[in-house]
């Protein structure tokens, strides 16, 4: 693995569409559940241990070379909200485009042919990590970091939150990100032998319900 490749893939400026999504933060802000840095931290912590863990497990499993189609079905079963399934596939397709140009690979080409409308983003992320010469842990780190930094950046725009405070939130969550990555990778390694059912399935009911509401708004800053 190369650390520099990890930074390229984890960079918020990697052109894969993430900037237009708030990871549920916009809905939580509108509902009054995030009003400042402490609410943002609590939101990000909950997201990290639920949707974040699930995504990291899928990404790690894909990076280990598990069948992307099986992982994609497992991702569907772990995403009850159709709005979020749609978002995950759109972002997966956007990431696929960026990754294929950045790290040309037969596996990415095959995945693109198999899922012309997009596979779940964490699955694509794992295959992209392989193409970049990265491992399961790297894929899981990219996934959890994006899952926390996305809502933090979005909240800076939504609440005009002090960007230093938002970055402080992300930094304070770093030890828990390490923990979640450890759990995700451990589960992914077991899944290689025991199948996708042993991958994490932690749920965040308000993220799912909030996403359905958000999808119906006429006026919003973020796509999700």
């Amino acid at each position: 693995m190369t650390r520099a490749a990890l930074l390229v893939l984890a960079d918020g400026r990697f052109p894969a569409g993430g900037h237009a999504h708030s990871g549920g933060a916009e809905a939580a802000v509108k509902a009054g559940r995030i009003t400042g840095a402490s609410g943002l931290e609590s939101f990000c912590r909950g997201r990290l241990h639920t949707a974040g863990l699930v995504s990291a497990g899928l990404a790690a499993a894909a990076a280990l070379g598990m069948d992307p189609a099986e992982l994609d079905a497992a991702a569907d079963a772990r995403t009850p909200s159709p709005a979020l399934r749609g978002v995950a596939r759109r972002l997966g397709r956007q990431l696929m485009r960026a990754a294929r140009v950045t790290w040309p690979s037969a596996e990415l080409d095959a995945l693109a042919r198999q899922f012309p409308k997009g596979a779940h983003q964490p699955v694509v992320l794992g295959v992209a990590a392989r193409a970049a010469g990265l491992g399961a842990e790297d894929a899981a780190y990219c996934s959890v970091y994006e899952g926390v930094s996305g809502p933090a950046t979005a909240t800076v725009r939504l609440l005009s939150l002090d960007p230093f405070d938002a970055t402080g939130v992300v930094a304070r969550l770093a030890p828990e990100m390490d923990l979640v990555v450890g759990r995700a990778v451990e589960a992914a390694r077991r899944a290689v032998h025991d199948g996708v059912d042993v991958l994490p399935a932690a749920s965040a009911p308000l993220l799912e319900i909030g996403a359905e509401g958000h999808a119906g708004w006429a006026v919003r800053l973020f796509a999700s």
């Binding site: 894969a16 900037h19 237009a20 485009r97 796509a223």
Partner: peptide, 21 residues
């Protein structure tokens, strides 16, 4: 309609993936 996350210039210049889709 493409949604731009409050940054329309990003969507047409820095990260064009949604527009290409």
């Amino acid at each position: 309609a493409v949604e731009t996350g409050a940054c329309p210039h990003t969507a047409i210049r820095d990260d064009i993936s949604a527009n290409l889709e």
